[in-house]
Computed example of a mutant assay.
Amino acid sequence: MLASVPVQEHNRARADTVSARNNSFDGSKARMLKKAVLLGFLALSGMSHAADADFTLVNRTGYAINEVFISPTKKDNWGKDRLGSNQLLNGQARKFKFGDTKNCVQDIQVVFADDDSEVEWEGFNLCELNKITLRYNRKTREVSADSE
Rank of each mutant, 00 (worst) to 15 (best):
R135Y: 14
Y63E: 05
S24M: 10
A43F: 14
K80E: 11
G27V: 13
D114P: 00
T140Q: 09
W78P: 08
A15S: 05
L57D: 01
A13W: 01
V5F: 08
R31W: 02
E118I: 11
A51H: 07
K102H: 06
V58K: 11
R138S: 13
A93C: 02
N125T: 06
R14P: 00
F112V: 04
F98Q: 02
Y136Q: 02
L129P: 02
F69H: 14
G99S: 14
K139S: 10
F25Y: 15
D26P: 07
M32I: 04
L42M: 11
K80R: 12
Q8P: 00
S71R: 07
P6H: 01
S19T: 10
V105R: 08
S4L: 11
R135E: 13
S71M: 02
G46D: 10
Q87V: 08
E118T: 12
N86R: 15
E9F: 09
I65R: 03
G79L: 11
F25G: 03
P6F: 06
N103C: 03
K29S: 13
N22H: 09
K35E: 12
D52A: 13
A20T: 09
L129D: 01
A43L: 15
F96M: 08
V143Y: 09
S28P: 00
H49I: 12
N23M: 09
R82Y: 06
A50T: 11
L39Q: 10
N86I: 05
V58F: 06
Q92L: 06
D107P: 03
D16Q: 14
F98V: 00
A15I: 11
C127G: 03
D115T: 07
Q87G: 00
A113L: 08
I132M: 07
V18I: 15
V119T: 14
K97E: 12
N90Q: 01
D114N: 07
L2V: 07
V143E: 12
V143C: 05
N125W: 09
R135K: 15
N90F: 04
D52P: 00
F25N: 07
L57W: 03
G79V: 04
L44W: 05
V105I: 15
T56V: 14
L44A: 14
V105G: 05
K139L: 13
Y136N: 06
R138K: 15
G123Y: 02
V105N: 08
T61H: 01
R138E: 15
A3C: 03
A15W: 07
E9H: 09
F55Y: 15
K102S: 11
L44D: 04
L38T: 09
S24V: 07
N103H: 15
A36N: 12
Q92V: 03
L44E: 02
K95S: 06
S24G: 04
N66G: 06
R138P: 02
G84E: 09
I65A: 00
S4Y: 05
K75H: 08
S24I: 05
K75G: 01
D76N: 15
C104S: 05
A30M: 12
D114E: 08
D114S: 07
V37M: 09
K80Y: 08
G27R: 11
E148H: 06
L57G: 01
K29D: 12
L129V: 02
S71D: 04
A51W: 10
S19Q: 04
D26C: 10
L134A: 01
D52M: 08
K75P: 00
F69K: 03
Q8V: 12
